[in-house]
Design a protein around this nucleic acid. Structure first.
Length: 575
RNA sequence: GCAGCCGUAGCUCAGUUGGACAGAGCAGCGGAUUUCUAAUCCGCCGGUCGCAGGUUCGAAUCCUGCCGGCUGCGCCA
């Protein structure tokens, strides 16, 4: 169903055209203060000048507003349209219209959310763990923000292609493979991820200390990149082992990445030489200080695409990936969810790809995010100053949540408490991250994210569980909630108006790539529902009111469930 | 040095892209419970939007300059 804001936009646009004979943006937005109304148009102030220029007559903004209203036809949508202040036009939606809208949405599988006008193929590049290393907190934001964006854009019925750009190629693997060989680890020996990490440390040390080993490591890279079977087999074992480590973490996190989404750096290896040649042929790349580089406007230092020893760099890989994604995958939009410290790198890569004509008509979008900080305002570390492993973080989240659940609901059996604790603990970690504007750094705080008060995952999950509890008590299926809605209480109207907005939110996230907009929406939904819950008895009401309120509960639950699903957060039936 | 990001209530964060007296949560204070899950709700207190100019009918938002903090910057990714 059409978004309210879109309906108002169309009606006001027509009214402006009718009043003044030209098209203008009605500047429709939510009212900042509900005392004024529900939506407002801010167009009159700006328009008064335009009108004066075109007609040569001075018209004050309030008079402009009056002329717009005279032409405005909102049908049965509005209960009241009024002018306030310098020329704001306030619209208050009518309860009857709201009730009709909600009934229609109630009957719809997508609760009335329209798909994108023009579905596109969208590549989302996120997570990108490093091979032979454990995932740590530094991977968390890319993984969950990227996953949320992929889900939202996919829900809009765009064709989303997830791409996990693994760090699975490069000089470090020569070191590691050479080291493993020297330790005479035979082909069948199974190293777990922690061993690999330790071997890597030792390999690095030996690389720095022993020239002969360094030489061997370099040769091993060459053999690997040339496709020598023995080295390749060793490399595959390392990749497989690392996957055995991160794939369960994805599943535990509720992240939708699967092995089929993996397109690591190694995948682009065969294309790198061609990328460099093409850029040289086009005169975009030049030789400089023995390397092949691309200078981009606004940056002193160039993007290096081939080292003086002939090796390629991650910029080369990123360029090859853009080419692959546009030409082979047919991407119309490519979204990169990566650390904001990469901004310069991506600016240079995008500029180069654009110049080379590899991104014609394709939108290259960088969705950067800030750093996770500890309570001291410095990057989040363990007490001893080490990087926090993602696995340890999730263990602690579940453990803390389990203590809370056990405290609040000691009667449930332990397996059930564990299950709820998983949803709450993981949900809390994800939500505390997703609910902040991704561009800024944010402070990680266990107590706040697990609190049941305030803008937290548990609070949202609690609202969902409460609604489900009502239906359990009611002893009826949600499908029997259909029927006429009546919105008499102010809390019912406030909830209804908010429910109607979900489509607008989804749309703006698709555009702005900001999951926190969904979090704010859901929190507001939870607050409004809680207020409704306090003031409007459901099951004890007269049959008609009861039916109407059950429908409101059902729609709230479905909206909450959808929102949490899009965030990748579980919603247990019971807490 | 060059480039980018940031500075909003004691704390953690919003601020719908230039609109009405700057909003939430937490903490603090005060209320509500024979409840449908109180893991809740309601109220109060709290801000020179880093500072100074400028543009505009109108600025937390745009421009300039300072102050303070973070980040990146040729052969790692």
């Amino acid at each position: 169903m059409t978004n309210t804001i879109t309906l108002l936009d169309a009606a006001f646009r027509q009214a402006i055209a009718g009043a003044f004979g030209f098209d203008a943006d009605p500047l429709i937005g939510l009212s900042q203060n509900e005392a004024f109304g529900d939506y407002q148009s801010n167009a009159a102030m700006g328009l008064s000048r335009q009108v004066a220029e075109k007609t040569g007559q001075k018209t004050n903004p309030r008079a402009v507003a009056e002329k717009i209203i005279a032409q405005l036809n909102l049908g049965d949508m509005a209960e009241q349209v009024s002018i306030a202040g310098p020329g704001f036009i306030n619209v208050r939606l009518s309860p009857a219209w709201l009730a009709g809208q909600l009934s229609a949405r109630s009957a719809d599988d997508r609760i009335g959310i329209e798909p994108a006008d023009h579905p596109r193929t969208v590549v989302v590049d996120y997570s990108g763990p490093n091979i032979a290393k454990q995932m740590h907190v530094g991977h968390l934001r890319s993984t969950i923000i990227g996953d949320c964006l992929a889900r939202v854009i996919e829900f809009q019925q765009n064709h989303v292609i997830r791409q996990n750009h693994l760090g699975d190629w490069g000089t470090q693997f020569g070191m590691l493979i050479a080291y493993l060989r020297s330790q005479s680890h035979d082909a069948d020996s199974q190293q777990n991820i922690a061993d690999l990490e330790e071997f890597y440390r030792q390999a690095k040390k030996r690389f720095d200390e022993q020239p002969a080993f360094a030489e061997e490591a370099r040769n091993t890279v060459v053999q690997l990149q040339a496709g020598q079977s023995e080295e390749l087999a060793a490399w595959r074992r390392i990749v497989d082992e690392t996957r055995r480590h991160y794939q369960p973490i994805y599943e535990r996190l509720g992240v939708s990445l699967k092995p089929e989404h993996e397109r690591g750096e190694s995948f682009y290896n065969p294309m790198l030489q061609q990328v460099v040649e093409d850029l040289l042929n086009q005169g975009i790349a030049v030789r400089s200080e023995g390397a092949i580089v691309v200078f981009t406007e606004g940056f002193e230092n160039p993007l290096i695409i081939q080292k003086s020893d002939g090796g390629y760099l991650y910029g080369t890989t990123d360029l090859a990936a853009i080419r692959y994604r546009t030409q082979k995958l047919g991407a119309a939009r490519i979204i990169y969810t990566h650390d904001s410290r990469q901004s310069q790198h991506f600016a240079q890569v995008f500029a180069t790809a654009t110049k080379a004509g590899w991104a014609n008509g394709v939108s290259l979008e960088y969705a950067p995010f800030g750093t996770m900080l500890g309570a001291d305002g410095k990057p989040f570390k363990t007490r001893s100053g080490d990087t926090v492993k993602l696995k340890d973080l999730l263990d602690e989240a579940e453990e803390r949540a389990f203590d809370l659940v056990s405290q609040k609901n000691p009667d449930l059996d332990e397996p059930h408490r564990r299950q709820i604790a998983r949803a709450i603990g993981i949900g809390a970690v994800k939500y505390s991250d997703l609910s902040k504007d991704r561009t800024s750094d944010y402070v990680f705080n266990w107590d706040k994210m697990l609190s049941l008060d305030g803008n937290t995952a548990p609070y949202l999950q609690y609202v969902y569980a409460r609604i489900k509890s009502i239906f359990r008590k009611a002893g009826q299926q949600t499908s029997s909630t259909a029927g006429r809605l009546q919105l008499d209480a102010p809390q019912e109207q406030a909830l209804a108006k908010h429910l109607l907005r979900i489509g607008e939110i989804i749309e703006s996230i698709t555009r702005e790539l900001k999951p926190h907009l969904l979090c704010m929406y859901l929190y507001d939904l939870a607050v409004r529902f809680s207020s409704f819950y306090e003031n409007c008895p459901v099951l004890q009401s007269e049959p008609e009111v009861r039916q109407s309120r059950l429908a409101l509960c059902d729609l709230t639950a479905r909206t909450m469930a959808l929102g949490l699903d899009l965030l990748g957060i579980d919603h247990p039936e019971q807490m």
